[in-house]
Design a protein around this nucleic acid. Structure first.
Lengths: 180, 180
DNA sequence: CTTACCATGTAAGGCGTTACATGATTCA
DNA sequence: TGAATCATGTAACGCCTTACATGGTAAG
């Protein structure tokens, strides 16, 4: 079992780029990490408190007007912790594709239902792909400026490649099911 | 929130193909569903008891010699339950790619470490791909015989397509990181 | 004026893994 | 005879999501 909790590492990773509020951390996850990682407020805020308690992050008040705001930053200890986690090999990559599960048992439900699941999957991928392509284009235009962008681009391109493979598969899978 | 627990659906799905023991269910998951779903004994056995309690599965003794063995089968109620789950749209497909996470924060650790994570990922994919290709070939040779095979083939081809996309990405990602 | 967004947090409960516990059989 | 595989199960615990609770601000 891992000593490092993933949520801590993600937060620390984001804080290694810039100081952020809990709300902003969630935002970053929902945009940059969306297609390969996710977390809810219910895990982010407690993790943030815990990180501060352990000295891996610091907090400061950043309130403007009447709006409360707590800005978190990474400490030196936090940076070491992150580096150590980055150094050790990946434990496991996990996927839980409900779409494939429903497809695997498709004979119970029939061809039409299988196709409708593939259609829904295809729609979702098609709607997300332009965003990824847009992000890649933007990143390519100022790759020299910031090193973090280079790594971000890497993950975006992973997304683009796999999404395109998904779309190809959707087409072929439907063709196979329809020729009957 | 879903009323249906995924573990119940997976088990019921496997039982819709054939009668199985808990041990065999785990085996099926570790082979057929491996690259898009997983579960441990700690979730399978309790789920099985629960399924019987709710009348969705039946159990019978299948002991041979001195070896105890409990064979589970799907009931009519179980089949309806499965069909209903199969009918409703997919809730969500989830992935948690630790590899991409470590890569996203790669600037903290440097190019060499990023490459070593990609290498490890590539190795894993390369070692699993032949198994998928072998499965696809076998399935293609008796696709007419059994309808369940057709759907199994669909998921295997999903695996092959995405794995190939992964490998392409690995190559390009490393090339990008190395040109420096 | 109301909807969407900014912003933080807690409590309950679900889900599932890991580790443990036990014991038979098969094969080298 | 020891390792691998067959076979079933429980207990502790961790992690996370959902739902709830609260309140300010910006924009239409």
């Amino acid at each position: 079992m891992a000593i490092e909790k993933k949520i801590d590492c993600v937060i620390l990773g984001l804080l290694s780029h810039e100081d952020l509020t809990g709300y902003e951390i969630k935002k970053r996850m929902d945009t940059f990490l969306k297609y390969f990682w996710g977390a809810s407020y219910g895990s982010i805020y407690p993790a943030l408190s815990d990180l501060v308690k352990r000295g891996l992050a610091g907090k400061r008040d950043g309130a403007e007007n009447n709006r409360r705001k707590i800005i978190y930053s990474i400490t030196e200890e936090g940076r070491s912790y992150l580096k150590e986690w980055l150094r050790i090999p990946v434990e496991k990559d996990e996927l839980r594709y409900e779409t494939l599960l429903k497809l695997f048992f498709g004979n119970e439900a029939g061809v039409l239902q299988a196709i409708s699941h593939i259609d829904a999957f295809e729609e979702k991928i098609k709607s997300e792909l332009p965003y990824l392509i847009g992000a890649a284009d933007t990143l390519k235009n100022h790759i020299e400026m910031d090193d973090t962008h280079k790594y971000y681009l890497l993950t975006v391109e992973f997304g683009i490649k796999t999404y395109r493979a998904y779309l190809e598969w959707c087409k072929e899978a439907k063709a196979m099911l329809e020729k009957e």
